[in-house]
Design a protein around this nucleic acid. Structure first.
Length: 669
RNA sequence: GCUGCCGUAGCUCAGUGGUAGAGCACACCCUUGGUAAGGGUGAGGCCGAGAGUUCGAUCCUCUCCGGCAGCACCA
């Protein structure tokens, strides 16, 4: 007999061969029905899998949402794979995991038919519902590796066979049958599990196939491209509907859509991946830039400006040409003759390259003259405009562009100063992100495979970054502290700041990198206390990351309703009747004289129309004036996002209110 | 860059193998109206670019450019 202990510490004895399902049934029919799987000694297992000895048992039901969702999504993936193979014979299966909101499965579609398209989805959904309603038992079996390989080879499943061949020899491998093994219509996949007891445990109305795409076999671009089908899956219909609603809400915040509606910027084919900033959008930029200048000035940075284009030899020396050339724009140093649209370039032409990063130029500034250890640390900042030739498929609105401006800076310091500089940067970053109301997490990206520099240097650099965060007290769960092996830049490990926006998405923005390679390659040095030359360490750092991306994040985070200090137009004075025109202009004039961005709307339109238009334009303050306000020297205030309730206040009062709200966070008292 | 889908008026989108339509926006006229669309009239399009099939292409085929969703790559 096995002793099975339940969460309430009661113990039940069962005969060998008994399963968690038996215990659930013994406790009650309600639980037997609700139980989806079992946690046995902490491990999630099939509810029909017999105990192998004494165990602690907790039954998993829909109430254990995280576990339940993971199980259900994994099962949807398998049901989808079964459905696809039944509808499209000749399709090979590969892998299909659960994701954050659903599942996907990668298939090798039959060559004769080509990859799946969205038109295939309704039929697949229908077939999935049929399989779910058939309530097929999901049966676990242990197979040897050879049996597996043979099985998949016989079926023509080359991907699965390849995978099975790499699995460890002696270990028993699990397969799951959908339907009794050997029975008509039974289907099989290699899978670690666990699974629900049967397909009927899934809700046929709680999933939806959402899209198709390509995906590389084993995530490697060098491998075959598979056809991936994505779905979202939930425990019940209500959850599915809520999820679809969340997607709609997110779509409404899309910065590309809002950017057009609010006339902030545009993109067009002739400069694809580079932003045309309109006056409204550039006003946000200017405020951000002014704010960051103040923050950096007071943190001891000095701002510089360096060339956009430098001789390729310089990029060769810095190492960028070797490691980064595929992302760089190069220009021949020639004079076009004006006759050919695209002049021929001689083989021996000199080449220049547009900067993809600011760092080499900053080293060149550092190298002018002789630097004493007494001068360190030297913090050189630049609002540096960089160009990177990104893969076309990666471009995305403001978030991923080919021309962007960084709030960049490089700190040159001694080894002894690194930890303190990084720690100070952690605090500066925290102040900035708090001013914008963001929460964030900090990650340490460790050495990648393709890299410069010795392992000893990487050891030191990684330790320094880690220690600095520890000293700042931020290497904690609260700050989402995590280390990411292999994710560093080719020249240095990186600390990364990931912002979480208003709807829970994360974006990498800030970074600091400790670099020993570039000072070496470009021969930067300072004179130490001992009168000898020494290599400085160079810290690359940014807080916004890029203005483009940061503005994109701000737009989505606020759904376009920017805080007053960032709003391109902070207030509109709108008239009800033309008799109030003069007064409206006077109001606007007074507010403008206080440095506020104010427009008037004197058009021959009804107030309803004006309210609607300026609300949609996300203007934070609408000041409505009619005869009454003109007579009394007041304005009727309509604050964007506040309830309908309106306030009528004096001109003096609105001046105080607006100037208060329009102050940048670092200037408030 | 790879896979799939898409490209028609400033914007959002219908549509057809015989060179085009709606709503909003825009212009003009009427309307002076108290908090999310007052009414009328009008102007506006090389139907992404190039080649092919066809008597004839916005529509069919191919190539290219761009966009979208993933993948891969990244601030």
């Amino acid at each position: 007999m096995f002793k099975i202990r339940l969460p309430d510490d009661s113990v039940r004895e069962v005969a060998p061969g008994a399963t968690p399902a038996d215990i659930a049934a013994a406790i009650g029919p309600g639980l037997a029905k609700a139980a989806l799987a079992a946690r046995v000694d902490g491990e999630v297992r099939d509810i029909m899998r017999p105990f192998d000895g004494d165990a602690d048992l907790a039954l998993i039901t829909a109430k254990d949402e995280a576990d339940a969702l993971e199980l259900v999504r994994h099962d949807y993936a398998h049901v989808m794979a079964e459905a696809v193979q039944s509808l499209f014979p000749g399709t090979q299966i590969t892998f299909g995991p659960a994701t954050d909101d659903g599942f996907y499965y990668d298939f090798a579609a039959p060559e004769s038919r080509g990859p799946f398209t969205e038109d295939d989805l309704p039929a697949i959904e229908e077939e999935m519902r049929r399989i779910i309603k058939a309530d097929k038992p999901l049966v676990r079996e242990e197979w040897t590796r050879n049996r597996l390989i043979q099985w998949f080879r016989d079926k023509g499943e080359t991907f699965k066979a390849e995978w099975a061949e790499e699995l460890p020899e002696g270990e028993a491998l699990t397969v799951y049958h959908s339907g009794a093994p050997g029975a008509d219509g039974s289907w099989l996949d290699l899978c670690r599990g666990p699974h629900l007891a049967s397909t009927g445990k899934l809700d046929p109305a709680a999933f939806k196939l959402t899209r198709v795409s390509g995906a590389y076999w084993r995530g490697d671009q060098a491998n075959a491209q598979l056809s991936r089908i994505y779905g979202t899956g939930w425990l019940n219909k209500k959850q599915l509907k809520a999820h679809l609603l969340r997607l709609e809400e997110a779509a409404k915040r899309d910065h590309r859509k809002l950017g057009q509606e609010m006339d902030l910027f545009h993109l067009q084919a002739e400069a694809h991946g580079s932003v045309f900033w309109h006056p409204n959008g550039y006003m946000i930029w200017r405020e951000l830039e002014a704010y960051m200048r103040r923050r950096m000035d007071s943190a001891g940075y000095r701002e510089i400006k360096t060339p956009q284009v430098m001789d390729v030899r310089q990029w060769e020396q810095s190492g960028h040409w070797g490691k980064y050339a595929e992302n760089m724009f190069a220009v021949p140093d020639i004079v076009p003759d004006g006759e050919d649209k695209a002049p021929a370039v001689a083989k021996d032409a000199d080449w220049m390259a547009i900067k993809p990063m600011n760092c080499p130029a900053h080293v060149l500034v550092f190298k002018q003259g002789i630097t004493s250890y007494r001068d360190l640390p030297i913090r050189l900042g630049e609002m540096g405009c960089c160009h990177r030739n990104e893969p076309h498929g990666a471009l995305h609105g403001l978030m991923r562009v080919r021309q962007f401006t960084q709030d960049d800076a490089h700190i040159f310091c001694t080894e002894a100063q690194v930890v303190e500089e990084v720690r100070a940067f952690c605090e500066l970053a925290e102040r900035v992100y708090k001013d914008f109301g963001f929460t964030y997490s900090i990650k340490l990206a460790l050495r990648p495979e393709k890299r410069f520099g010795s392992d000893a240097d990487w050891d030191k650099a990684e330790d320094e970054l880690r220690n600095a965060v520890v000293e700042a007290g931020m290497a904690t769960e609260e700050y989402g502290w995590e280390e990411l092996p292999g994710e560093g830049a080719f020249y240095a490990p990186k600390l990364e700041w990931h912002l979480t926006d208003a709807i829970g998405r994360t974006w990498q923005v800030g970074t600091i990198q400790s670099d020993r390679v570039l000072p070496e390659r470009l021969d930067a040095s300072y004179i130490g206390e001992d009168g000898e030359k020494h290599r400085p360490i160079m810290l690359h750092r940014a807080i916004y990351g890029s203005y483009e991306r940061f503005i994109g994040i701000l737009i989505e985070n606020h759904a376009g309703r920017m805080p007053v200090w960032l709003a391109p137009v902070q207030a509109v004075v709108a008239t009800i009747v033309s008799d109030a025109d003069t007064y409206a202009e006077k109001v606007a004039e007074r507010l403008k004289n206080l440095g506020l961005r104010v427009d008037t709307d004197l058009r021959n339109e009804k107030i309803n129309y004006k309210v609607r238009e300026h609300s949609l334009a996300k203007v934070p303050y609408l000041l409505v004036v009619g005869k009454r306000e003109a007579d009394e020297g007041t304005v009727a205030v309509r604050r964007l996002g506040a309830d309908k309730h309106q306030r009528v206040i004096t001109l003096e009062e609105i001046e105080v209110e607006l100037t208060g709200e329009a102050k940048a966070p670092d200037l408030r008292r």
